[in-house]
């Protein structure tokens, strides 16, 4: 099972791996870290064009660009973290086969690395909110708690995928479109209010739904659905525990089968 003391002893390695990934990501690029700002802005523009202007998806009365951006922040972080950590073990097979350290650090580092991008994106959103005439509210104080829920969900799903991918490379292929489907099951490009009220409870099965809506409420100053958020936080914690437990159960075999 999971050896927390061992994990603590290697905490510096986590920091080193995160820093490595960050450094490597923008080496040999011309505009470097600017990509962190450009990427979410570009997807905001694309989604605004397609869903806001062409399909005319309703956006609860807010500018669609803000509406989609505030939900894309947590979603982009989540899907990026799951994809990266899902592949992380296989892409560091050299380390797994030759060095002894708690394997959990590898997928966790992948999930942690995305947090820097998330923070920068949050800053960008905070900066453009007033441009659209939306003020900052006390709701923003909930962002760290909501982010915690998303981090837990990402860690749970990411570690699960990383462990499964070691044995069955299928999951490397599966993860990409599973996340795409998941995104459309989550109110990212459309508002929760688009779903008929009597079916809305189904969204509770998807912890990302209330958390993403929560992000939106935090930035746009809408009222929170506290009940749904509480359920989703608990569900995220359960996903986290399940993913890490499965990982702990199978990690002893990694070096033999990777």
């Amino acid at each position: 099972m999971l050896d927390l003391g061992e994990l603590w002893r290697y905490r510096e390695l986590l920091g080193v791996l995160v820093r490595r990934d960050l450094k490597v990501r923008y080496k040999q690029t011309v505009i470097g870290v600017a990509w962190v700002i450009l990427r979410p802005l570009a997807s905001m523009a694309i989604f605004t064009l397609v869903f806001g202007m062409l399909v005319r998806v309703p956006s609860d009365g807010y500018p669609y660009a803000l509406f989609v951006f505030s939900a894309l922040l947590p979603w982009t972080y989540f899907s990026g973290a799951v994809l990266l950590s899902g592949n992380s073990l296989v892409s560091s097979s050299g380390l797994v086969g030759k060095v002894s350290f708690p394997r959990l650090i590898i997928p966790v580092a992948a999930v942690a690395g995305g947090l820097v991008d998330l923070c920068i994106s949050v800053a960008v959103l905070l900066a453009i909110l007033p441009v659209f005439g939306v003020g900052w509210t006390m709701n923003l104080l909930a962002v760290p708690i909501l982010a915690l829920g998303i981090i837990m969900a990402a860690l749970g799903v990411g570690t699960l995928f990383s462990a499964l991918t070691v044995a069955y490379r299928d999951f490397g292929h599966l993860a990409g479109f599973a996340l795409q489907i998941w995104m459309y099951l989550t109110p990212v490009v459309y508002p929760e209010s688009l779903i008929p009220e009597r079916w809305r409870f189904l969204l509770l099965a998807n912890p990302m739904a209330a958390l993403v809506e929560g992000f939106r409420a935090a930035f746009l100053g809408k009222p929170f659905d506290f009940g749904a958020i509480a359920v989703s936080l608990a569900l995220s914690a359960a996903v986290f525990a399940a993913g890490v437990a499965y990982f702990g159960k199978v990690e002893r075999r990694f070096a033999d089968i990777i």
């Binding site: 080496k27 050299g94 060095v99």
Partner: peptide
């Protein structure tokens, strides 16, 4: 344990950065 020389070296990182990375891995 040192089972392979240079495990975990990252091609795109500098020598300095790799010293810290490799040291942490070891």
């Amino acid at each position: 344990s040192l089972l392979e020389v240079g495990t975990g070296f990252h091609q795109d990182l500098t020598g300095r950065e790799n010293i810290f990375l490799n040291g942490a891995l070891l």
